[in-house]
């Protein structure tokens, strides 16, 4: 993976480089620099703690979009075993922006879904940048119905910059496909665990995002609209994303306060892109714990609870 450095990460990366160089120098020249290295490492640790605990909302959006951030399949291979991918909506096409399949979670068969972004240009195009078409939502629904039929829990990873806005998508009913999923997911008779791992943009995310437990990674964002699109409409200037991100209150910390999500999953210091295994281990812990807490709830109660969960979301006066 190439080195990509976000603005606010620059001092950290420079210090890291210095430490690496110093270590190499110490070995090469056989000089004693241990104290100096240790001093720099302490400084680095403090700098990282300081930087990442004070990120503003726009900086978190940048981290959520970090090109090295783990994507759905990176998590799938670390969290599950025996993943069997399945394809197609049985109506029109397969949508590579959504991966779906069967897998084992600590040995137990589950159904897994998630938006997939690409890393190389070719992959990005193939995955349509993680933007689903209607057939993607219908593929998701088909797979969820399979889960319902065989009474398997559903685990869904969300990471999308939005549902695809294209002519074909509209012709095939993007709105209807998302609406249908919200409707069907709200009365699916099996547990659904949602994890927002990166970007959660609007209806494109929610279209596979209705569930019993909503978990969100520390540096993910989830909002009714992307900050840039919001800025373009309300400020008439798409470069005002910084302002829009602040106004939209789209971070995990904001959403837990608003009661939209159930848990925040802590990321490795500096973000999930710095330690895939550690990030995946955390995500797995949360999935397992939450699944255990709802596994034995009878389907009718599960559905009623789910409807009530969303029923409580809203602020108004009467």
């Amino acid at each position: 993976m190439g080195e990509i450095v976000l603005d606010f990460e620059r001092p950290i990366v420079e210090l890291e480089k210095k430490i690496t160089e110093m270590k190499a120098y110490a070995v090469e020249e056989n000089v004693e620099l241990a104290d100096e290295i240790k001093r720099l490492e302490t400084r680095l640790y403090r700098l990282m703690q300081d930087t990442y605990s004070k990120l503003n909302r726009w900086q978190r959006v940048q981290l959520a979009r970090h090109p090295n951030r783990p994507y759905t399949l990176d998590y799938v291979e670390r969290i599950f075993t025996d993943f069997i991918e399945i394809h197609g909506d049985r109506q029109f096409a397969d949508d590579p922006a959504l991966v779906a399949g069967l897998a084992r979670l600590n040995g137990e068969p589950v159904v897994v879904l998630g938006q997939q972004k690409g890393r190389t240009t070719k992959e990005k195009l193939y995955r349509n940048f993680g933007m689903m078409n209607p057939e993607g939502y219908r593929k998701a629904l088909r797979v969820m119905k399979l889960a319902a039929k065989f009474k398997k829990p559903v685990v869904i990873l969300i990471d999308t910059p939005g549902a695809y806005p294209g002519i074909g998508a509209e012709e095939r009913g993007q709105g209807e496909a998302i609406a249908r999923n919200l409707f069907e997911m709200s009365h699916l008779p099996v547990p659904i665990i949602i994890v927002i791992i990166g970007e959660g943009a609007s209806g494109g995310a929610l279209g596979i995002g209705v569930g019993d437990r909503i978990l969100m990674m520390e540096n993910a964002w989830y909002s009714v609209i992307s900050p840039e699109a919001c800025a373009a409409i309300l400020w008439r200037d798409s470069t005002k994303g910084v302002l829009a991100a602040e106004a939209l209150k789209l971070t995990a910390g904001d959403l837990i306060e608003l009661g939209v999500i159930d848990e925040v999953i802590q990321e490795p210091v500096g973000g999930a892109q710095r330690a895939y295994d550690e990030a995946a281990r955390k995500v797995k812990e949360h999935i397992v714990k939450n699944l255990d807490s709802i596994r034995d709830i009878p389907p009718a109660v599960l559905i009623e609870n789910r409807i009530n969960k969303y029923g409580k979301m809203g602020f108004f006066k009467e």
Partner: peptide, 12 residues
């Protein structure tokens, strides 16, 4: 913001 989005799930 996000609460508007959640109204989609609520109504559906």
């Amino acid at each position: 913001s996000i609460i508007s989005l959640m109204q989609m799930a609520k109504t559906a």
